[in-house]
Design a protein around this nucleic acid. Sequence first.
DNA 1: AAGTAGGATAGGAATTTCCTATCAAAGGAT
DNA 2: ATCCTTTGATAGGAAATTCCTATCCTACTT
Lengths: 310, 310
Amino acid sequence: MADDLTLRQLRYFVTLAEAGQYRRAARQLGLSQPSLTAQIAGLEAHLGLVLVERRRSGLVLTAPGREVLEHAQRVLRAVDDLKHRSDPLRAGLAGTVRLGTAPTIGPYLLPRVLRRLHEAYPELRLLVRDGAPRDLAEDLAAGRHDAILTQLPLPADAFEARPLFREPLFIAVARGHALAGRGTVGEADLAGQDMLGLGPAHALHGNVAALCREVGARLREEFEGTSLDALRQMVAMDMGLTLLPALYIQSEVQGPDGDVAILRLKGAYWRTVGLAWRRASGTPRALTRLGDSIAEVTRRDFADVVTPLR
Amino acid sequence: MADDLTLRQLRYFVTLAEAGQYRRAARQLGLSQPSLTAQIAGLEAHLGLVLVERRRSGLVLTAPGREVLEHAQRVLRAVDDLKHRSDPLRAGLAGTVRLGTAPTIGPYLLPRVLRRLHEAYPELRLLVRDGAPRDLAEDLAAGRHDAILTQLPLPADAFEARPLFREPLFIAVARGHALAGRGTVGEADLAGQDMLGLGPAHALHGNVAALCREVGARLREEFEGTSLDALRQMVAMDMGLTLLPALYIQSEVQGPDGDVAILRLKGAYWRTVGLAWRRASGTPRALTRLGDSIAEVTRRDFADVVTPLR
DNA sequence: AAGTAGGATAGGAATTTCCTATCAAAGGAT
DNA sequence: ATCCTTTGATAGGAAATTCCTATCCTACTT
């Protein structure tokens, strides 16, 4: 004896109540009358209630039967909701994506992406959380994010990544600095300079450190910024030079009026930004939508700032 | 291959999501891990979604998985509601009883019953509808009422009845009528009198007609009341005598100030009022509660007006 | 590098669901 | 009234589902 309620019982019961007859209900359900009888009997036994009065001429729900009918319909409606939601979910048109983002990227890119995404896929929600960047990959691996927006490449190979754009990195110096007037600087100009970076948890730290090694500059590890804004302010106070990403500059540094001067570095100096997710999660359609939206925004609004990839 | 969603799948999925591991979830569910795997795989196949990422160290719900989890929990909550409601329903402590009532009884008795019932069984709702009294039994038979409050006995034997009380029937005459001064009248006093009744659809019609035959009074069929109030007013205008039930009198006729005089008939003149329901519906506990409440009210509030039975 | 843990797979047993055939009783029709 | 039709219940066996044990494969530990 089945001792658990089944959807089958509820479905049959609702149909029976609507049909008002076992045989007719059974026909509608595409099964035999005895099978229907058995399921209804099972439901009644399970609930310990008499739900229908069997009568030759049209059957009648009992008072508890009517109540149970309402509940059963509520249950089936909830099930329908579930089924109907699964289509857009499958197509990546609905649902909530938890996106982790590096603090040096998200704030300067995502506002427009969110708007664009909402226009295109109103039922797709993006839950943006920026955590300490070193934790991004770990949080992604642990399933705390569905995807992360970060500098590529990622160390582990448990991840799949979609490169989105190359973002130039510029040198920032204090307005009063000797280099401030130069539009472009070469490696030689940087030799021996003091440079500032973010904490080693940030991917950008690596870029600064690498540059320092390359050009023979000195990384002042004792002064580590905790945000790009803090870094910029330290540069403005002439504590050193630093690298700032293009999107940040476009967003937060007011051209010639800003408190720091922006210099182009000779040679290609940029980082690659992309979307990454767990390989084990397949490639959810929703992430494709998200990637497309970001790509679209970069092409449309930031084409002069970054280089879209693919 | 089952192509329909089952509660089993949802239950297992929810447990799996909470347990975070197939084996642990399977243990909690009291089944083997392969069985659980199969059910989850079935759910995923049915929805066309990947719900969980299988990983050695703790598994992770996908974005659609989280969404589906919420829906599944909603479904299971609805199912729980249903199960939990079934207990009070079974005990007759909740639910809605559709009670049909004769217009010569209900209005004068039910107000107090409703109050009493609500005090005693707050979740038990009574839906009172008075229809044309001849239709009462028919509507009951057809399942439009769950029970009816009416004069007994009922003709058909498809019904089960619980007698509740005997209600005296009094003679009402106009204040100026020759009999108005008498406190009690005998059969002889009524011989040759004009009598008024309700339409033949009313059970009370039968009582009046029987009395007329018995005592040799004349039933004025051309003047049939449509309500007890209408009847009383016709009596007040001295168009004839009639029988009025005790509860009506106590409720609507203001003793010596009323527009009609009330006379006691020599010999026992009363009708039996009771609760009736379809034999096929068993004897729902809720009806027992209702009957008990009526009996209690009659004993407590109407002991001097009617005679409780049993 | 071997061991352990966790999920997937395979094959067969146990349960559940379903069907056909048949019964019994209620309503209608003649 | 009596027969006939309709309707739900019951019985027995077939089909499908669910479940279990045994085993495999792979990722993470030691």
